[in-house]
Design a protein around this nucleic acid. Sequence first.
DNA 1: TATTATTCATATAAAAATTGTAGGAATATT
DNA 2: AATATTCCTACAATTTTTATATGAATAATA
Lengths: 148, 148
Amino acid sequence: MRISAKGRYALAAAISLAENYDNGECITVISISEKLGISKIYLEQVFSLLKRGGIVISEKGAQGGYQLARIPRLITVLDVLSAVELALFEQTEETVNEKAPEIESVMKAMVFDSIDSAVKDVLEQITLEDLVNRAEEQKKNQGFMYFI
Amino acid sequence: MRISAKGRYALAAAISLAENYDNGECITVISISEKLGISKIYLEQVFSLLKRGGIVISEKGAQGGYQLARIPRLITVLDVLSAVELALFEQTEETVNEKAPEIESVMKAMVFDSIDSAVKDVLEQITLEDLVNRAEEQKKNQGFMYFI
DNA sequence: TATTATTCATATAAAAATTGTAGGAATATT
DNA sequence: AATATTCCTACAATTTTTATATGAATAATA
């Protein structure tokens, strides 16, 4: 399943904020854009969506920036992606066929709704805390890892 | 999750073929396009993908058309959609960040791969037979159903 | 108070993907 | 020979995604 660049940016940014959550400081868009190698101007728009979705809070002006709106354990990947991706669960694309309504409704009930709920189930089990922990583990173990 | 028009057309067409599987006759693109209310020319391209994917077989010329390549019970929704939708499982969109490789790899391992396998698990459990049966049920029960 | 660093809002442009059309070649049936 | 179909390829239109540009609003700080 395709997660758009916007979704990937949002998730990477949210993880970056989560990594610094404890020190309580604001983080600027430009610092994240540099860290991740993403256009700053585009990332601004992503943050604007994250804010509208209640994922982050902001502080204007010098020394301002963004913080997570709550602790990383209480923010799921579903929260982040649905704040940003319109197409994550898209309703009522009912333009397939007016003349064969039972095919339309069977596809929706057995296929599309099933996919949606499976994806939702997965994404709401993964929190930003989980992701940060795993990333930390990975950094630690880097010394012991090698590639073949 | 967004399934494109192409995917929905393909699935609806496959169901239509499955409904007529038993009588063994070929079905033309134009008859399905009329039944479903889809552009015939576009649907031709969809069928060309279904054929390339081994979902259908074809017969050229007058009295020609398409048939399912095997019985509906042995064709899953995953088969149909992956024959047609490039974006169903899309690999290696690794352009998020070169500088933060652990974020990249954590997102892939914990999020994107999880979604993909959840979707795959769901779609490979649903066969065309299941869909046809459900559509039949629905038609039968229509007399007893009413809306409030 | 002026300067600076930031978010915030909006418009637009560029690129990519999706959806659809057109025309005709190949082929099988009648 | 005529007809009905798949098949192939190129193109066009539309929509979505990605990115840029510009400047207003606001808060800190010198």
